Simulated assay, not measured.
Amino acid sequence: MSRKTKLFERASKGQTRWLGNALRNETTGGILLLVAALVAIIWANLDFGSYSSLKDYKIGFADLHLELSLGKWAADGLLAIFFFVAGMELKHELVVGSLRDKSVAAVPIAAALGGMIFPAVIYTAFNFNQPSASGWGIPMATDIAFALAVLAVAGRSLPIELRAFLLTLAVVDDLGAIIVIAIFYTAQLNLLALAVAAGALFIFGMLQKKNVTGWYFYLPLAGIIWYTIHESGIHATVAGVAMGLLMNLKQSDKVMHAVHPISAGFAVPVFAFFSAGVYVQGLSIEDVAGSSVALGIIFGLVLGKPLGVVGTAWLMARFTKASLAKELSWWDVATIGILAGVGFTVSLLINELAFKSNEDIASMGTLAVLIASTVAAVLAAIALQFRKRAHAR
């Protein structure tokens, strides 16, 4: 008789140590992200002209099509670092983490997919057959840094295995979001640039396979990969996740140790600063309630995320005859589902891509992401308090 699969069982000592480091880095990044977003909102509403001028200030090389605004550099350049880390985290989970065992991996992968599909369906229901329908990808993403920051503050005593589930869920979610960006938010392709990028990625992968070390090999190669993917018409953040997935596991731990603080402590907060500065003066609750974009995003993140995550995970567990580890309950998973509704970084990125030709809709989308993330964070914090008491008993 086959052994019954246990979900979220205690990790090994090595895996627990790796998870602890990753969670601490993401928690710090989440706090910095929140501070950066608050500064942006305050500045934008005190003096939107100066904030907008800074965001739109262009630097770079026009001949190379790289004379970009600071906001664009943050979205295309700095977020590539964030996705590079996400790619390495996913590689780690696939090789030695919770995604290594297919029977166990099926549940968080399905939960992540459900947590992407449900919000997209809800958004589409509000915006069907409207110009704003292109924003269906906005409520699909979970902000790993922001969510883990909430978990660190409100759910510190919860088992690390459940926090690992959130990390795995968010990493798979990030990969799904980058696939959505590459396929559905790419206007046109430059096939020559894409071919060069593919060749450079092949060289990158071979160097990793041969255990070649040295930043002087990889830094110029990474620059070529990023530039050619940027030129191909695909969003440049795809370069980051592609290189992360190609990393040799032995080297990736060392690289993550060096790059993760740059991603969590600088890249993501700077992107948040340039993306969260929405002008809200003159807007009312009626304006938000009357916007199909805002309603689709808010209900998608706050309601669609937990329904998708928990419902899909429960169905997968039931039909694969898997069960939770004895110290956990489905209420714990439901709490993580609520927390998964904290969307920020990738949601704001997709909002910019979906509505780049309509500033008014983009501003409403940004405001809706901020509202939804705040509501989800508050609800999750309340739920976490109940789960802390339950585990204490």
Rank of each mutant, 00 (worst) to 15 (best):
T345Q: 15
P220H: 06
A340E: 04
S329F: 03
V378W: 07
A197Y: 09
S232H: 06
I109V: 09
L68G: 08
Q385S: 13
L303M: 12
L99R: 06
A325T: 14
S232A: 13
S52Y: 12
P159V: 08
L23Y: 10
Y123R: 15
K72G: 04
I41E: 02
G97N: 10
L219G: 06
A141V: 09
A152Q: 11
F217S: 06
F271K: 05
L219I: 15
T237W: 14
S329P: 00
V180T: 14
A376M: 04
G311R: 01
W43A: 14
G71S: 03
G296K: 04
Q188V: 10
L46M: 07
L33C: 10
W73K: 00
L219H: 05
N129M: 14
I178L: 13
N211Q: 14
L162V: 05
A44E: 06
M88P: 03
L169R: 07
I224L: 15
M88S: 02
G304H: 09
F61P: 00
L384Y: 05
S357V: 07
T228R: 01
A322Y: 00
S103L: 05
F344Y: 10
H230Q: 06
R17H: 14
L221C: 13
G214V: 09
L162Q: 00
F299D: 04
L328I: 15
L38W: 03
V288D: 03
D174G: 14
S373M: 04
L169H: 07
G296M: 03
G30D: 02
K210T: 06
F217R: 05
N129S: 15
L339I: 09
K305C: 11
A334Y: 12
A272V: 03
G30F: 01
A187K: 04
A294F: 06
Q385I: 07
G49R: 00
Y57T: 11
W43K: 08
I224H: 03
T312P: 00
A383Y: 05
Y218I: 08
A362V: 06
G343E: 10
W43I: 12
W330H: 08
K6D: 11
L90D: 10
G115A: 12
I297Y: 00
S363A: 15
L221D: 13
M206G: 02
A340G: 14
R100G: 05
N248S: 13
L192H: 05
F355Y: 11
